[in-house]
Design a protein around this nucleic acid. Structure first.
Lengths: 250, 250
DNA sequence: CGCAGGTTTGAAGCAAGTCAATTACCGTGG
DNA sequence: CCACGGTAATTGACTTGCTTCAAACCTGCG
């Protein structure tokens, strides 16, 4: 099984090799308001930070840290996909964020993490000792500023997602999610956008049941807006999908 | 009307005068995980920052900034209550946060604000030029670190609220909201916890309709858990309320 | 092949929403 | 001091979008 995972990671690295730089990859889709240049590191700090990192590999569903853990590292995703999960005692689950290649995790101020980080698929991460990053931020103002901007970005995304969870319909949530995933990870030559997470994960991210995800995806397929495959989906009618994503009526 | 507002602000200042310091007030209720010392400024930076601020007064429902505004100031709440609001074109509204005395707003990295800030009640704020705070943060590492911790704190709260919006029932949301308000603003000598926002605001914060807020509050009253008044509420059976707040069954 | 996991679809239930009417509250002016 | 008017809160009756429970269907892999 571990071998299988490693194979998978290998495949993804092939696919994403050109994107596995410190900077976010160029996107095939439309410009994305939330990712963009803010996720980039200031160039003068790149070399100093890079020397501090070590590459690690995590298997599908492996836990990078648990809810409540004292986390001593920050991570940058080289390839793969990570979910940030909050779990209630009775099993209810909320995924606050999916992270993909280029994204950072575990650089919050407090070392105690209130969300677990788990690999959605086999992933490759670059790991940095938190205290080393802290020290660098203390010395280099641009690093401190970059880290601060990264936090602001995450806060903006969180506020947007609160609106989604509190006020949007299932159809809007899912259509917007698909467009967002396309914007963040791009599509391959055949036009397929990878969806590494399963229906249950999508549901726990969007505050819906997995059956609801299925039903809405089926509806979008019937309407000719998308096509789905085992590894992802492709957009057949972008305009229709965009209408769904910002729909007030049906 | 403006006179009336000013009167109201005056009253609140009387009531909260002991809390109107730079540090968060001591709380009457149980310890609160999310507020605590992280909201405090490092002491060595207090004096330098304080000299940069000017006191301003805002009337009830006044807009401090609008969605999309380029905000040149950061604010600390001296007294009163502020809501951070995201509005959709069709009128759907999500309040991402209520802010009370001691809380900060508008210190995010990007000057462009994606949420509007409006006064729930007449409020007194202390205003700081953003660029001055930035400059101070560049010079004083402890200020940069404090600001970073504040952001982490907000991110933690956002993640917690996403769980609430995505996975908790109306009863759980409202009971937890009441306990949270008590922990943050405390109760007066008669045991009343002020609720400056109306039912509609609470609904837009919790992702519910105002009628649902009413119904659940009525249910909690009938169960003997709380008592409500025009200005707030008081807790009659804390254990019952806490059970509601973390209920898996009914 | 055949199992095991994830996915899809159906049928029925229910928590919260919607629409609407009534009541409580509060400031204002007679 | 009380009648009045406007706003917010409450309650009721009904509807609905999503959930729940259940069964069937893929699909990849040993």
């Amino acid at each position: 099984m571990m071998v299988g995972e490693q194979m998978m990671v290998g495949e993804q690295m092939m696919q994403l090799s050109t994107q596995a730089s410190l900077l976010r990859p160029p996107h095939a889709g439309p410009p994305i308001p939330h990712a963009a240049s803010l996720a980039d590191q200031p160039h003068n700090a790149v070399s100093a930070l890079e020397e501090l990192g070590t590459v690690i590999t995590v298997a599908k569903n492996a836990e990078i840290w648990a809810q409540g853990d004292n986390v001593q590292y920050s991570y940058r995703i080289v390839s793969g996909c990570i979910r940030l999960v909050k779990l209630m005692e009775d099993g209810r689950r909320q995924i606050s964020e999916f992270l993909v290649a280029g994204d950072w995790l575990g650089f919050d101020g407090t070392a105690i993490q209130d969300v677990a980080a788990e690999a959605v698929a086999g992933s490759v991460l670059k790991r940095y000792k938190r205290c080393a990053v802290d020290a660098l931020a203390s010395r280099d103002n641009s690093v401190a500023h970059w880290r601060f901007e990264l936090m602001s970005q995450k806060l903006y995304l969180a506020q947007e997602h609160m609106l989604t969870l509190g006020r949007r319909t299932a159809g809007e949530r899912i259509a917007a999610f698909l467009l967002d995933m396309e914007a963040r990870t791009g599509r391959d030559r055949s036009g397929t956008v990878p969806l590494p997470m399963n229906r249950s994960d999508i549901g726990d991210y969007l505050g819906l049941r997995l059956e609801t995800i299925c039903r809405v995806l089926s509806r979008l397929k019937r309407a000719g807006a998308i096509r789905t495959s085992s590894t992802g989906f492709s957009i057949r009618d972008r305009a229709a999908l965009e209408v769904c994503a910002s729909e007030t009526l049906h």
